[in-house]
């Protein structure tokens, strides 16, 4: 088990954004979290990454309790995420963005950088080489020296994914990666997500685009009003009456 969520609750005042949600994630799968707007999907992600402190419940990552840990500690443990609204460092180059992702995995110091010692040069070139690997993996290596804010939208998403991968996570959380993409870009994104899984990473995706969800998921968790209403394979979910109700509303009775 790479991730286990036990009875997780997060309330904001009287509102329970996430209520008693539990599920387990096996390593190496793609799991999608779906649900109508306001179902608590992003809140769940925020709890997982330490951005929010859960009100109740526990989160275990590789059997270690990570509930309430600080964001940078969770990153070091091996969880990375991307955001629904793109949050790249616009004023830096594409390459630098990815190098920052490697922050917690590198050690170079000030003295080395100023004196340009061999140790520093070696580590710097290793970091650069690795950063290029992530850029190649996501297919944006030709833009390495471009200022990140000048990248086209679809490539900014890829850069976010490249930067998240640079933290060397075992588990990567993608928050609506297909948002704002055209059908062609969505298909390319699905290929990329599959590639990440084939590389041995576990992926959790929040997504509204059902074509993407049904196309890539091994397992789907459905939230509605903060509560888990279903869990299963894409096939099972598609025929689940609770899920259909949550999305389309109860059928009229004549």
């Amino acid at each position: 088990m790479i991730l286990e969520i036990r009875e997780l609750t997060k309330s904001f005042g009287g509102l329970k954004a996430v209520e008693e949600v539990s599920f387990k994630v096996m390593p190496g799968i793609i799991l999608s979290v779906i649900g109508p707007n306001g179902a608590g999907k992003t809140t769940l992600f925020n709890c997982l990454t330490g951005a929010l402190l859960p009100t109740k419940g526990k989160i275990f990552f590789e059997d270690k309790d990570i509930t309430g840990k600080r964001p940078y500690e969770i990153t070091e443990a091996g969880i990375a995420r991307t955001f629904q609204n793109i949050r790249i460092f616009g004023k830096m180059s594409v390459l630098e963005n990815v190098m920052i992702g490697q922050h917690s995995r590198s050690r170079e110091g000030f003295v080395g950088a100023v004196l340009r010692t061999n140790g520093f040069k070696k580590e710097e070139s290793e970091i650069k080489a690795k950063a290029y690997e992530f850029l190649e993996f996501t297919g944006i290596e030709e833009y390495a020296e471009t200022r990140a804010e000048n990248l086209p939208y679809g490539y900014q998403r890829r850069l976010e994914i490249a930067r998240a991968l640079a933290t060397e996570p075992k588990l990567i959380l993608l928050d609506e990666p297909a948002a704002g993409m055209n059908p062609q870009e969505s298909i390319e994104l699905m290929t990329l997500i599959n590639k990440i899984r084939e590389w041995g990473k576990t992926v959790i995706v929040i997504e509204h685009d059902m074509k993407v969800v049904m196309g890539i998921s091994d397992k789907i968790v459905v939230l509605d009003h903060g509560v888990k209403i279903a869990e299963g394979t894409p096939k099972e979910i598609q025929s689940n009456t609770d899920v259909i109700e949550a999305y389309l509303g109860k059928g009229f009775e004549f």
Partner: peptide, 20 residues
């Protein structure tokens, strides 16, 4: 680099493993 990242977006920087 971490400093420049923090100046641009603290939340994102912390999610990339930077101790703000």
């Amino acid at each position: 680099k971490a400093m420049r990242a923090v100046a641009q977006d603290k939340t994102m920087a912390s999610l990339l493993g930077i101790n703000i």
